[in-house]
Write a protein that binds this DNA or RNA. Structure first.
Lengths: 300, 300
DNA sequence: GTGAAAGCGCTAACAG
DNA sequence: CTGTTAGCGCTTTCAC
């Protein structure tokens, strides 16, 4: 290209503060620079880490990541998949929770690249899946070595798509190692701290208590931990606790951190409100102050 | 609308599996249904919670959230702001780290709604900011009540935009309460666990050790905590530790959780690679297995 | 090398 | 209430 042409174009670009309109580009080329990440709960540090790394990787290809939370609800999962087609996203990475293989057909029919991250397959679709067998066996062996024989699990909900492979695997491996995972020591709930707390309390109220509790993920495990403390159980002396995922917090903290609370949820709500008002036509700028709070815990 | 017309349209819609092309819609209307959230580190649970709530709130208005990580780097912050204009996003919510007020001018000139979430103002722009004064005072009072007088801080980097309001506030309140925050007890680093660990080690190697350490955020505090354990310091007996933000993990764990590690970063990399290959034309589906790992910590 | 023109799929405006 | 049309800003193609 002639250097003078280039210079004149660049001058005009700066003058008019021109930037390409990627919407028009996408319409013309049929290619969007956005990929969707659809997960049950982006506030779960496991998914947050997933989002961070995915974002970094896809950036190399010029793709941005749209993060979508389903709160593990089937209707939201479906709505988000439909939206991905409408938006002509470049691709979708999803951890389905209550979706069925059929739900993906519109996407694959439309030729949209889809990658599923899950313990089990969701049909003829790209899959990233963990091989947890050896790890679960190691966990059981360590439990057995500590003379623990009564295994329990706080598992995910009964209606999750693909069943509960973590539970099934634990059951079959426990059997093989001569340990019991009796039906009354399997409790179920959502992947939340509340479910973990409730489940743990329930398990420890059994006539024959478990001496090791496996959890469907680390969020459940943390709920169980908190309840254990509340009920005066010592972990691991009274009962062993094993999570799933190694979400960042799992290794982190040895005691409760005293802190100055900056309320993220409140901040987000305020930001959303400000954006809303702008979209509704507000012209002058506003400031919202949210109140920080000193939270005294055991590190002081 | 005539019910028969409606029926015929819906039949055709289903027949051809038609969905609106939101790209074309955006081009025509000039309105995008995407808002950007630009933060230093989405893997930091504080920002993950922010993203989750923002997403939920904006969803009510039909907006999706594009999550962008800057890794606290000024060049990435600038690139992302420029990208927001190009993409004609409906709005931007950002926690700037090394940006200057001038960097926002192209956005405001283009009429794009921008909300800043930060401790200090970044010019004539909507702002969500925490009021940490009373909380910091409470923290200092509790520290003083425990007969601690030598305060330290592991602060953020020196070149952060807007200085370090958390440090300034701590210094001025400490002074007012008759406590010392001597210069040699202020160390600086990025908002990472590594910086927290390094900073803590440095502080405890001082001739006159601090008896209370404040941290710029909870990620730093966790790094400090780990280093304290490694060096054999007991918290809070030997030294008090105070964080900032109350990121979800801050209150959670009383001991190190044994878990089965599901490597989120590896999963993300695999998913990105699969997406890549699809975009490059691969037609058959593939499965990637990542290895889970049993991580024995103190809960078993 | 540069210039002109068509058309991506939609919405908004207007005519019937 | 329905049908027609222009044009959003870009990329691609083809002619110069």
């Amino acid at each position: 290209m002639a250097p003078e042409t280039r210079a004149s174009v660049e001058a005009a670009t700066a003058e008019l503060s021109f930037t390409v309109n990627t919407t028009a580009r996408s319409l013309r080329t049929g290619r969007s620079s956005l990929a969707a990440l659809i997960v049950p709960d982006i506030a779960n540090p496991f998914y947050a880490q997933l989002a961070a790394t995915l974002q970094e990787e896809l950036r190399k290809r010029g793709l941005h990541v749209v993060v979508c939370n389903t709160r593990a609800r089937r209707d939201e999962e479906q709505a988000l998949l439909a939206e991905a087609v409408q938006q002509r996203f470049a691709g979708v990475v999803i951890t389905p929770f209550r979706l069925k293989p059929r739900d993906f057909e519109p996407l694959t029919d439309a030729g949209m690249p889809v990658v599923v991250s899950a313990d089990v397959s969701f049909g003829p679709i790209d899959l990233v899946t963990p091989d947890t067998r050896a790890a679960t066996r190691s966990a059981l062996q360590q439990v057995a070595a500590a003379q623990r024989r009564r295994i329990a699990m706080i598992a995910g909900p009964r209606d999750a798509a693909g069943g509960d492979p973590r539970l099934e695997q634990l059951r079959s491996l426990a059997l093989r190692l001569g340990m019991a995972l009796p039906h009354e020591l399997v409790v179920r709930g959502e992947h939340t701290r509340e479910a973990g707390a409730t489940g743990f309390a329930e398990l420890m109220s059994r006539r024959h208590r478990p001496d090791a509790v496996f959890c469907g993920n680390d969020v459940i495990a943390v709920g169980a931990m908190e309840k254990a403390h509340e009920l005066g159980f010592d972990i691991p002396r009274d009962v062993a606790l094993i999570g799933h995922d190694d979400a960042s917090f799992a290794s982190l903290v040895r005691l409760r951190l005293t802190t100055i609370r900056h309320p993220a949820a409140e901040v987000a709500r305020a930001a959303a409100r400000l954006l809303d008002e702008r979209l509704d036509g507000r012209k002058v700028h506003r400031t919202v102050q949210v109140k920080a709070e000193f939270v005294a815990r055991s590190s002081v």
